[in-house]
Amino acid sequence: MKIYTITCHDVYNYGASLQAYALMRYLIKCDNDVEIIDYKPDYLSNHYKLLSIHNPKWKKNIITKSIYLVLKIPGRIPGLNRKKAFDKFKKDYLKLTELRYKSNEDLKKNVPIGDVYLCGSDQIWNTLFQNGKDPAFYLDFVPDEKIKASYAASFATDSIPEKYKPMIKEKIERLDGVGVREKSGVEILKNLNIKMAVNVVDPVFLLDKKDWDVITKEEYGEKYILVYDFDDNQLIKKIALDISKEKGYKIYSLNPGKLKYADSNFTFHGPETFVSLIRNAQFVIANSFHAAVFSIIYEKEFVIVNRKEAINTRMKDLLEDLKLKNRLISDTFTLDDVLKKIDFSDSKKILNEKIGFSKKYLRDVISLSERMRNVL
């Protein structure tokens, strides 16, 4: 089958890049011809622009603009190294369409010709962000006669605002298959009277450790705790410092900005380093969904802390489903609780069943196109 996927693949985020790669790679392993639609609307194109002015009060005149940029540009230049690392990953590992599309209308005017179209994974339906309101991420541009489905699409929250429900219901009812990443997503759709939705795993789970080892070449010569923190979270800092003191491990950080308490900062590295650092860590502390996912794949000791943003449902659902709920840590933690060794045996059984179900879902979606082709 010729399959096109669409997701937020180029937003300089580890999880976004890796889930895009994983779905593409798994479908290729199943002998399909797969491309990721290079969809880059304006609202996803604001990364690493040296001359952008985000605060309206500095846009008053040429003098205020100049002052703003003189203050901001020196701090932005080092970030281009991170952009370079992600762009290299995209070039080396993601098979994109030759055309880049900037809007749903662009896609409608020149639809890439394929057999099956998949939207997902990740937070493509999160209405807290613009992508959750964008018809393109609901495959609105795909003709009615083509097979359309979501795979592991995420709302990232427990509920969606009332004003977006009619649009979401209309767009999703056009799909031939609805696979969402969280069980809460299934409930959201049931409340919209969409009963065909099923819960499937994040696409990074479709690849096993051997598949991921192909892109993880880096080794580190010491024992370390890996910290990945979006919020400058004081609880994460305390846990990291307590474990470091107890175990004598170094602290490595993957944060976009340097952590002062870390021994080594991997600020400007790409997705391959993200996976390598988790694979080789003694302990992972994060408020990242995909940090939890890769910790589970590599069976690493880890804890997860809630984010300030209201997008914690995906982490809570994942850990509850795999009987790892105790790895979600609050302010009342004790070091003994954190350091209690994780028994992954039950989690692996549950996860393997979910992976099997998810692979069957994809096979069934693809077979719809095969049956349609035979009929025609």
Score class of each variant (00 low, 15 high):
S52N: 12
N255T: 05
E353D: 15
Y12R: 00
D158R: 04
D92I: 02
L27E: 04
K2G: 09
T64C: 01
Y151G: 09
V178H: 02
K340Y: 11
D31T: 04
F266K: 02
S150G: 09
L339W: 12
S347R: 06
I36H: 08
V142S: 11
D321Q: 07
D33I: 11
I236G: 12
K195L: 15
G270H: 06
N61H: 03
R25K: 14
F289Y: 14
Y117P: 07
S244Y: 06
K72N: 11
D343S: 05
I355W: 10
I28F: 03
R25I: 05
M315F: 07
L118R: 00
A85Y: 05
K348F: 05
K300R: 07
F155P: 06
Y249T: 04
F89V: 03
A153N: 06
I285D: 04
L351F: 07
Y361I: 07
N126L: 12
A262V: 06
S52P: 12
D87G: 04
E98G: 15
K2M: 07
F294E: 00
F357Y: 11
E145K: 10
Y43V: 09
K148A: 07
I3K: 00
M24E: 14
S184A: 14
S159H: 09
I304Q: 03
D242W: 07
F283Q: 04
L241V: 15
G177M: 01
V70E: 01
K49L: 13
L206I: 02
N104D: 15
L335Y: 05
E301M: 11
N104C: 14
N131R: 00
K237H: 00
T273C: 05
K165W: 10
I62C: 13
V186G: 09
L351M: 07
K29T: 05
N104P: 01
C8G: 09
P203A: 09
V186H: 08
E320K: 15
L96S: 06
A22L: 07
F266I: 12
I53C: 14
K195G: 15
V201H: 02
N326L: 11
M24H: 05
L107K: 09
R371V: 12
T5K: 09
D38A: 14
V34S: 07
L189A: 10
L69E: 05
P271H: 00
L80E: 05
K323L: 12
R373F: 13
V284D: 01
D122V: 01
S66E: 01
R327I: 02
A136E: 07
E353N: 15
Y151M: 10
L44V: 00
V70D: 00
R373S: 14
V34F: 04
Y48E: 09
Y26I: 02
T273M: 14
Q123T: 01
P78D: 08
K348S: 08
K109L: 13
Y117E: 11
Y252R: 02
K340T: 14
Y151E: 02
A16N: 09
A156N: 09
K325D: 15
N233R: 11
E145A: 07
N81C: 06
G177N: 05
S288C: 04
D242P: 03
D317P: 01
A291F: 02
